[in-house]
Amino acid sequence: MTVLAAVIALVGSLFFALGAALQQFEASGSAEPGLLALLRRPRWLLGGLSILAGGGLHIVALGLGPLTVVQPMGVASLLFALPIAAALHGRRPTRAELTAAAVVAAGLIGLVLLVPESDGPARLEPSGVVTLLAVAGVAAVLLWAGARAASPAGRAALLATGSGVLYGATATLVRALVDGGWNWWYLLALPVPALLALMMLQRAYAVGHFGVSFASLQIADPLTAVAFGALLLGEPLPTGLAPVAAAALTAAGTVALARTTPLETRH
């Protein structure tokens, strides 16, 4: 069952990578990267369906195998996404680009595996939901503002990081709903960070540095979820030098991606 879970998670990563590459291809260089404009593009919608399929397969894999096997397979989507995106833009990924992506993936796998498993249900009070949305919202606004003055690669990274923060807040809220009991007020709040994250991500994709934006998203999303879990749900954080080394590896790989991934826009 563990082998089957790994295979399903790997296929899910491929679907997720394909969806992200398709959506970036449609958003890149677009004069109107807003959701309303993108929703009229069949290829962008196909990318969304592919992402949903990848997420569904990841959930199935988690039901069949341990987290320590399934999660690293999920990180492989970065290595799949770069060649797919390059092919859509009519080029081949460079060795330096793939090496940088592998460094990011290795650091992210280390961070994911070092996070201690939580015990007990995740309960979030209404005041915690307000704090969650406020902190995520302020962080996203600051990152959005910083992106306006950044270079293209920096803009893609900051916008995607903001999207990852909002997705991490969404994941925390979903977990509180599933583990701590359903609440209609939480359900009403759930679409807000999710939609804002999707909009911000399309802005990041529109810049053109797909490798940078996708890597930044993959880093910010789980780290934000872990931070909110510790801040609001009382979950444990990893300790020691290993998490620091993994974070440094991930940061170094992202910087290398920013220097090696070319600007890709549609004309």
Rank of each mutant, 00 (worst) to 15 (best):
S118E: 11
S216Q: 04
L14V: 00
A20Q: 14
F16R: 01
A157K: 11
T99L: 14
P42Q: 10
A106I: 12
I8G: 01
G168E: 09
A153Y: 06
G74Y: 04
G12A: 08
L201M: 14
G154L: 10
L108Q: 06
V70E: 00
L114H: 09
I109K: 03
L124Q: 11
G146A: 07
Y167Q: 14
L45H: 07
L4H: 04
L78N: 03
R259K: 14
I8T: 04
T99H: 05
H209S: 03
A149F: 09
L113F: 08
R40L: 03
L231G: 10
G137P: 12
L142D: 09
L201H: 15
S13F: 02
D179K: 03
T239S: 13
R148C: 02
I219V: 15
A189D: 08
H267V: 11
F80T: 01
G110D: 07
L49G: 06
L190D: 10
L142I: 10
L142P: 07
V129C: 07
A105L: 04
L223I: 11
G181W: 09
G168Q: 09
A251F: 12
V75R: 05
W144V: 08
L263Y: 03
S216W: 01
S213Q: 03
G240A: 02
L132G: 11
Y186S: 13
P83I: 02
L231T: 06
P238D: 07
A87H: 08
A37D: 10
R95S: 12
T254H: 05
P33C: 12
W44T: 04
A251W: 07
I84D: 01
V255Y: 05
G48E: 06
L14R: 00
G34W: 06
A101C: 02
L263H: 15
P236M: 03
M199N: 10
W184V: 15
A122K: 10
L159P: 13
A21Y: 01
L64Y: 08
A153L: 02
